[in-house]
């Protein structure tokens, strides 16, 4: 199984960025706010041999307390607000939110009594990964963009000091 050039490029950039910012360990927590189960299927495949997230220094964690990044699927169901809030609050800063698929973008359900319709109405979203569902490669690309944004967040933390290189980004 030979990876395609595009996969290789995305993977290499992601690996470099996570290594620089997280010392080979960015931890991801997933949460489903009403998906149709297909985005979950693509997320699970991120650890499969074709994509193998672990080789890039990214890992899934069952605990939000160990997580740097929250991967959210679904249209943000109102009945799930409390669980989502608790999960987000349990994560230590700096933290990232990546919205997966068309649902959290507002492409499937409109805002109504059941759903918020867009994840941004309940959580500060750093990156949207469009697609219904986004393929694992698109998810990798989304993670790369999110990791890139992390430098700004780390810089904003008062208790950290960073080198000139990071601050100038």
């Amino acid at each position: 199984m030979t990876p395609e050039p595009e996969e290789e490029r995305v993977a290499a950039r992601l690996r470099d960025a996570t290594h620089r910012l997280f010392g080979r360990s960015l931890h991801i927590r997933t949460v489903d706010t009403g998906s149709c189960a297909v985005c979950e299927s693509e997320i699970r495949l991120l650890t499969a041999p074709h994509y193998d997230l672990h080789r890039l220094g990214l890992f899934f964690t069952p605990s939000p307390r160990h997580a740097d990044l929250l991967l959210v699927t679904g249209p943000a169901i109102r009945a799930f607000d409390r669980a989502l809030e608790k999960t987000y609050d349990a994560m230590p800063p700096p933290k990232l939110v990546v919205a997966v698929g068309a649902c959290p973008l507002g492409g499937v359900y409109q805002e109504d009594e059941f759903v918020h319709g867009q994840l941004e109405r309940v959580l500060p979203v750093d990156v949207f990964v469009p697609g219904c569902p986004p393929s694992p490669l698109a998810l990798l690309q989304g993670l790369l963009v999110a990791v890139g944004r992390l430098a700004e967040k780390v810089g904003a933390e008062s208790f950290t000091t960073l080198g000139d290189e990071e601050e100038s980004r």
Binding site: G34, C36, V38, S41, P75, I77, F80, Y109, V115
Partner: peptide, 27 residues
């Protein structure tokens, strides 16, 4: 936690748009 009101949502829809929602009931 995952109730999206699919059956209620389908009420009043045209068939083509309804199929879009039906496919996403259980992807």
């Amino acid at each position: 936690h995952k109730h999206r009101g699919i059956e209620r949502r389908l009420g009043g829809e045209e068939v083509a748009r309804a199929l879009f929602v039906v496919e996403r009931t259980e992807g």
